[in-house]
């Protein structure tokens, strides 16, 4: 089986995990900038993080024949301090020309605050100015529904936004239709406890179809599984989904969305 892991936080994972992904058929993976589990003490911390995402991780992945791409931003958790967030945002443009940077992400909301929303909108404008795709994180647990509505309302105010170039991630049963009905792509994150299990993700595929949907492991420093996507593919097989249907969801769909960046070219060596 071939697949693309469209959302994985490999800075939190060991090199052994790269090997497991390669053995499972992962051809390319994408790493959005996120909260490290602690707040950075300075913008310099982000400068080094962006170097890690754009230089070090692509080389580490290449050793296992996996292409590594990244998305850049300041995450919504640390965006609640707008002064600090703007300082970090000022260093992002110098990384946007790196050959493996796909777009702006994962921006979004965390606790649904005005500060987070202001920085979210500044990121959307940056993406529009540069004609870049956008990857959006929706809040956790009880905050997800409200945050999804806030994000959709905010995006609606950007009249020049191409909704095909925006993916709203971590959807669940109570948010997926809002995202798809508004014309955006939706991502389902497969986590052992929170977000979405493989069984529920497959339910949503059966109910909503496979258009504008992808699945990811978002594997990070928390309780997560870097092999969640191939495990879900196996579960699809057990539920009588055909090899073509599985390939559509785990390979062709992420390929279609990500290829909106000319830099995304699975199969061609990047480093």
């Amino acid at each position: 089986m071939r697949y693309i892991e469209p959302h994985a936080h490999m800075v939190s994972r060991t090199t052994d995990d790269y090997e497991k992904l390669a053995l499972a058929g992962c051809e390319a993976l994408c790493e959005p900038a996120f909260w490290a589990g602690f707040d950075r003490s300075s913008a310099d911390g982000f400068y080094d993080y962006f170097r890690q995402l754009t230089d070090y991780e692509p080389k580490r992945a290449a050793k296992y024949g996996i292409q590594h791409y990244s998305w850049l931003c300041i995450n919504p958790k640390e965006a609640d301090d707008p002064g600090f967030a703007r300082e970090v945002m000022s260093i992002i443009p110098q990384f946007l020309d790196c050959p493996t940077v796909l777009g702006i992400g994962e921006i979004g909301l965390n606790k649904n605050t005005r500060n987070e929303l202001a920085i979210f909108e500044e990121h959307v404008q940056l993406a529009l100015d540069r004609d870049l795709p956008i990857l959006i994180h929706t809040p956790h647990l009880e905050d997800k529904l409200k945050g999804t509505h806030l994000i959709l309302d905010s995006l609606a105010s950007f009249s020049k936004l191409d909704r095909n170039k925006v993916i709203i991630d971590h959807v669940e049963e109570h948010t997926i239709s809002h995202v798809l009905d508004a014309g955006y792509w939706a991502g389902m994150t497969l986590y052992p406890e929170s977000k979405c299990t493989p069984s529920r993700a497959i339910d949503m595929l059966e109910i909503y179809g496979t258009d504008r949907l992808w699945m990811n492991s978002a594997c990070d420093w928390g309780h997560s599984d870097p092999l969640a996507v191939p495990r879900c593919a196996l579960e699809m097989k057990r539920r009588n989904h055909s090899a073509e249907q599985i390939d559509q969801v785990v390979y062709k769909n992420p390929l279609k969305f990500l290829s909106q960046s000319a830099r995304f070219m699975p199969g061609s060596p990047k480093t």
Binding site: D80, K111, T113, R114, P139, E142, K144
Partner: peptide
């Protein structure tokens, strides 16, 4: 889900409990 409609300027607390 939190069904409130108010928007605090900054987060009164961090984390989500479910």
């Amino acid at each position: 889900s939190d069904l409130s409609t108010d928007l605090p300027q900054t987060a009164p607390f961090q984390g989500a409990s479910g």
